[in-house]
Design a protein around this nucleic acid. Sequence first.
DNA 1: GGTTACAGTGAACGACTGTGCACTCAATAG
DNA 2: CTATTGAGTGCACAGTCGTTCACTGTAACC
Lengths: 219, 219
Amino acid sequence: MSNAVDTRTLEPVSEPLTPVSRQERKLRTRQALLDTALELLADRPFATLSLREVAKGAGIVPTAFYRHFATMEDLGVALVEEATRTLRGMMRSARTDPDTYQGMISASVATVHQFVRANEDHFRFLTRERYAGGPLAQAIGVELRMFSGDLAIDLARFAPLRSWSTEDLHMLADLIVSVMLTTIVELLEARPGEDAKITGTAEKRLRLVLLGVPHWKTT
Amino acid sequence: MSNAVDTRTLEPVSEPLTPVSRQERKLRTRQALLDTALELLADRPFATLSLREVAKGAGIVPTAFYRHFATMEDLGVALVEEATRTLRGMMRSARTDPDTYQGMISASVATVHQFVRANEDHFRFLTRERYAGGPLAQAIGVELRMFSGDLAIDLARFAPLRSWSTEDLHMLADLIVSVMLTTIVELLEARPGEDAKITGTAEKRLRLVLLGVPHWKTT
DNA sequence: GGTTACAGTGAACGACTGTGCACTCAATAG
DNA sequence: CTATTGAGTGCACAGTCGTTCACTGTAACC
């Protein structure tokens, strides 16, 4: 690294700003594997990916794949973790609560819209694999249940919902999550220019659901 | 095979009740292909099915597959048609309308429950491939939109909904369909004995949605 | 009865798959 | 400076894949 005095005078000239330590190179290759996998997943299910094409896309030879993942499924799990990190980021962003329903609804839908557009690959992967079966679908299912559970806790702080049973709160949270997932899928399938219509419909659906809340008799 | 006397005295003895005309045999093989495909699809996405294993499962040699379908994708399309026939049957069954919300809700959920349990393979296939991407997902999407459209028409006959705009009716219908789809997936993933809980939650979700209807201001 | 149509056969092909193994060679450790 | 580690290489293998082609045997047709 440092400019050695007598032996080699100009060792790090070619790439002076990238120290590229050994483990950092490894991390980059790993990320390259994840990135090319995500690209390939834009139009096909995970189960059809081959180790060889992912390796090729990342610029390494097939056997070098094993330096990073023991199996393709492990790559998939890593991908789920990466994507759900985005999902949790979205939830955190949406938690800035205005205390009116209307404000909360439009803010949440806007947040979803923004995050989906900024991370289409992640959301496409999550919604694609959600019902595909196998261990990935299960991992995503666990994550979505946590998501729904957190939402239920948040909802409990709203005045009209304070008296609700936890069971009913979960029922409402699941309902909202399923509306959001539907919206996400619609956004991913949308042709350019349809976004406003989709988010508008999403807001309506949430408004309708919340309109029933004051009249609900909790168990 | 048979002990022939002079010419053939007892031609249709071995299988006297099955005349097995030529085209009927073909139809049976075709159905065997569809059936084994559906079995294999119980735990993996359609895109991972190979022509060879479907043919083997149906008891024919790989090349004979082409006598029935030009490509695996065509087999998939036929499968979508078969499964959506079940779906339409369910809709028809659910259309026996009691004129109270409560009656309609529990009857509809019961119908869904019954149809899912009686045709798990079909519903598993539909929900698995719905978001898998590719032409099958698109075909299923078209079918679901028709389903939702029919539901919107049915809904328009209810008194509190007569004044709603068609746009809002579709919004409500989509919402109900997405609740139903969520319920179907839950039923398919359920462990034995959880059915009552799932259908109960499904009824609650629908009741909550419909509770908002009288207070909705249509556009 | 002789001929045709056609569902199903069996061998072969080229392409692609995951994985084992011996290797190179540069960053790191001592 | 030397020794070690380990990411990436290159070859080879045994399978599986979709698809081709010439074929067989029998139900259906005239």
